Computed example of a mutant assay.
Amino acid sequence: MSEAQSDLYDAIYSFKNYEQEAAAIKSLIESKRPEARSVLDIACGTGKHASFLQASYAVDGIDLNESHVEAARKRNPKSRFTVGDMMSFQLHQTYDVITCLFSSIGFARTLRGVEQAVHSFKEHLEPDGIILIEPWFTPEDWQPGYVTVLQYESDDCKISRMSHSSTNGSTSILQFDYLIGRSSGIQHVQEQLELGLFSREELTELFIREGLHVEYDEKGLIGRGMYLLSRK
């Protein structure tokens, strides 16, 4: 969604159970790095995962969307949220755990982009830390031509979002059309997202080349899987 409309992000994704997902993340951390005290959430959105994780960890975040970062700061005033690109950010700090959730790694778009992102992740990771990456769809699982509709209603706002999926080479394209109804009238907003399609084999080989030990959870948080990475 365009930055001008990013205040609607939480509304359209209100179906996500952030509390349940945060509990699953905490369980993963406890099983792999029980002594962890700090978490960096890459592509943190509006900071909803952080709001639940901060009861157990010091949680910071980065996101490319300035308005998302501002919302995350308001939601989690004790944390540090920074506007930054996952492929080139520099916080001059290291963390026990780095997360990249909700398939955000797909926004790296190419394997070279993922490689750059992983370099940035490693620069901010404690020597015995872990990285949790929730992948986007694989080329085999992506369905061009798929159409979905999401609805949201509150007392002062109603939203309908229709999406259409397509493919350009190894890039998945999501076309979103929003109808946003308020007492002042109906607004039509369009958005296009492009995410890289990577096979499990491609990502696994890339992570290994980067000197990382790779574990893979088939289910993950929402059925898209989860990579659990640590230094060898």
Rank of each mutant, 00 (worst) to 15 (best):
E3W: 00
E3M: 06
A4L: 10
L8Y: 14
L8P: 03
D10R: 12
D10A: 10
D10V: 03
Y18A: 06
E19Q: 13
Q20S: 11
E21N: 00
E21H: 05
A23G: 06
A23M: 09
A23P: 05
S27H: 13
S27R: 15
I29Q: 07
K32C: 07
K32T: 12
R33V: 09
E35I: 05
A36Y: 10
S38E: 07
I42E: 00
A43N: 02
C44P: 01
K48H: 00
A50S: 13
F52K: 01
Q54H: 13
Q54N: 11
D60Q: 04
G61F: 02
I62C: 01
D63K: 01
D63G: 00
N65G: 02
V69N: 03
V69S: 05
E70D: 07
N76W: 04
P77F: 05
S79I: 02
F81W: 04
V83W: 12
G84H: 12
G84C: 06
M87T: 13
S88Y: 08
Q90A: 07
Q90T: 09
Q90I: 04
Q93S: 02
Y95L: 04
D96N: 02
T99N: 01
T99L: 07
T99Y: 04
L101A: 06
S103F: 00
I105H: 03
F107G: 01
V114C: 06
Q116E: 15
H119K: 10
K122R: 14
H124P: 03
L125H: 07
G129W: 12
I130Y: 10
E134K: 02
P139M: 12
E140I: 10
D141E: 14
D141I: 09
D141T: 14
V147W: 05
V147C: 06
Q151A: 06
Y152H: 10
E153M: 11
E153H: 09
S154R: 12
S154Y: 06
D155V: 14
C157M: 13
C157I: 14
K158D: 13
K158P: 00
S163Y: 00
S166G: 08
S170R: 13
S170C: 08
F176A: 01
I180E: 14
R182C: 13
S183F: 11
S184N: 15
G185Q: 08
I186L: 13
Q187G: 04
H188R: 13
H188F: 11
V189L: 10
E191Y: 06
L195Y: 08
L197R: 09
S199Q: 12
S199F: 11
S199G: 13
S199I: 03
L203R: 13
L203V: 11
L203T: 13
L206F: 12
I208K: 15
R209D: 14
E210R: 12
L212P: 05
L212R: 14
V214K: 11
E215P: 03
E218L: 12
K219E: 15
G220V: 05
I222H: 07
I222L: 08
R224Y: 01
M226V: 10
L228V: 15
L229Y: 05
S230C: 04
S230L: 09
R231H: 12
